[in-house]
Write a protein that binds this DNA or RNA. Structure first.
Lengths: 315, 315
DNA sequence: ACCGACTGATACAAAGCGTGTATAAGAAAC
DNA sequence: GTTTCTTATACACGCTTTGTATCAGTCGGT
């Protein structure tokens, strides 16, 4: 059977007139008569009672009319929804992110994506970097946001925001009155840092900076949430370095200081499994690209996170 | 969209291998690749992730696989049921009949039809001839059984059984000891007859016979059911003529007598509306024809109703 | 009762689409 | 590195579909 023939049949059955049906179908009448005849032969059933003057449906024809309409509608809807799924307009996307991504990076992306692709169901999971990388690896999460770099070849990533580090000091610290601090002045301080996750570039970046400043940070306490490290700083346990966007976490007993000569160095990235991205994922990555304007050279704009008081950025 | 392409797609989606799918479809691999590509273009969606070495379904493909299977099954079932309806294998048939038809004519026909066409729902209505003809005329009944002839041009008929009349006399009647009676000997008797329906040939046939025998029957009572006329005869109200098959209505106080020189003359017929018979009706008429063996010249066989004691029939 | 208009069927030709064959191109396996 | 496996491309052939021209039968009007 053939959907085209069914369309023809429905037209004839509705018009009960081959000429008018042919007109409606934008075709000549003889081929229409021929196709209906073919359909009847194919089905082994008479569909119309024809006289030279009038056309009526048989029982078989009446039945086929109902079924054909249903089939055609089903086919059309299928084509439409398959198309939309193919374009990423409809679907489901599991997004994983480290808590800090929820601060400034994720909201504008989710807003833009939700507007452009309202048919996509988003599943959001806030997890630590290790779990996130594992979830990305085995497909439980389609796309993730975490600090770069990481060391898993099967994943691909693009930077989404680049920030400077700022130093977080207890309010009682002798340096808390300075406008900015040099990293080397913190060489003797006790440090509070996040643990060294397999994939999280954050901790490594901090340690690397300290080494470049000529010292190995003495870590007296670890806490996986940066908010917690800041709380510990507030409690006078030590000092730490955090991405500039953490400054919006204003906490009594903590002061943030730009770090002298420290250019924006820590990148938060969007990460996905290498290979054939799904249409929804492609669509999402497209929106991420638009929002963060990657491709215009250095990322900047909405999710660009400036250092404290416009510190070290800007032309 | 195109059901053939969907079949191809399902094969590829199930095999996840173009060559094997092509083999299963009994076709060459290149046209299959081409058709899948066409389908993807038509739907505006990628259906497979292809490498030079492997094939995987996309989300859109997974969705289409489900829908395509459903569409194909639906199409196939539609074709099948339309075919069967077209052959009269499935459907509904309203059969009307006068009560006497239920005696010997209808049962073998219904049995044969039910065996051959178990999918057809039969609606049986026992009505008087006038209602039956009206119901046939306006389509409430598809086919009817009643005594011929009738006078409605829009209906068509074939005789189904031909019977002789027998005389029904009260057991107390002086002629009840004779082996047979001549019609003329009943000329003075009071008659009990069925009413003169518009279409019922029965009453007219009886009156005509009487006239040929030289008298006008004196009707003292009418009753539309022939069983009732026989009851009235049993009650001594009068005499009557009934089709031979009515003899199986053995009732105390009534004797049946063959009528001298009266050949089988009353025909019960199958009647339907002229024009295009439905497939079910065609099928039914075919069975009626088979069962009554019309076309073998004179009707005889199963529904042939012989006169009493083999009376006036036979070669 | 005849004529014209309407409608569906048939005949034939052209175009488009589907399918087969031959072959290329790329990836995995040995 | 060579072989094998698998999909994609190129091209040709044939069937199916479609259009044009025309016929045949029926209905309505004069």
């Amino acid at each position: 059977m053939n959907l085209q023939r069914l369309r023809y049949f429905v037209a004839v059955a509705e018009e009960l007139n081959f000429s008018r049906a042919a007109e409606r179908l934008c075709m000549a009448q003889p081929p229409l008569s021929y196709q209906i005849k073919r359909l009847e032969e194919e089905l082994g059933a008479q569909l119309f009672y024809r006289t030279k003057r009038s056309v009526r449906l048989t029982d078989a024809g009446r039945l086929l009319l109902v079924e054909a309409r249903s089939l055609l509608v089903h086919a059309e809807q299928t084509a439409s929804v398959v198309h939309r799924v193919g374009q990423g307009e409809v679907g489901r996307l599991a997004i994983g992110f480290v808590p800090s991504a929820a601060n400034r990076v994720l909201p504008p992306i989710l807003r833009a994506f939700g507007e452009r692709f309202p048919g996509v169901e988003l599943l959001l999971r806030e997890v630590d970097p290790d779990r996130l990388l594992r979830a990305l690896g085995d497909g439980r999460v389609d796309v993730g946001f975490l600090y770069l770099p990481f060391k898993i070849d099967s994943l691909e990533s693009r930077p989404v925001s680049r920030e400077a580090f700022v130093a977080a000091l207890p309010g009682t610290h002798p340096l808390s009155n300075e406008p900015r601090v040099a990293l080397s002045t913190l060489s003797g301080e006790p440090f509070v840092l996040t643990p060294r996750y397999q994939g999280a570039g954050l901790r490594d970046k901090i340690v690397e900076h300290c080494r470049q400043a000529g010292f190995e940070p003495r870590v007296v306490q670890e806490a996986w949430l940066m908010q917690t490290t800041v709380s510990l700083v507030a409690g006078g346990i030590g000092v730490t370095l955090v991405p500039a966007s953490l400054q919006n976490l204003q906490r009594a007993g903590v002061v943030y200081k730009n770090v002298e000569g420290l250019s924006p160095e820590i990148e938060l990235g969007v990460v996905w499994r290498r290979g054939d991205p799904s249409a929804v994922l492609k669509a999402f990555l497209g929106v991420v690209g638009d929002v963060t304007r990657w491709g215009e050279g250095e990322p900047e704009g909405e999710v660009r996170v400036p250092a404290l008081r416009g510190g070290s950025s800007g032309p």
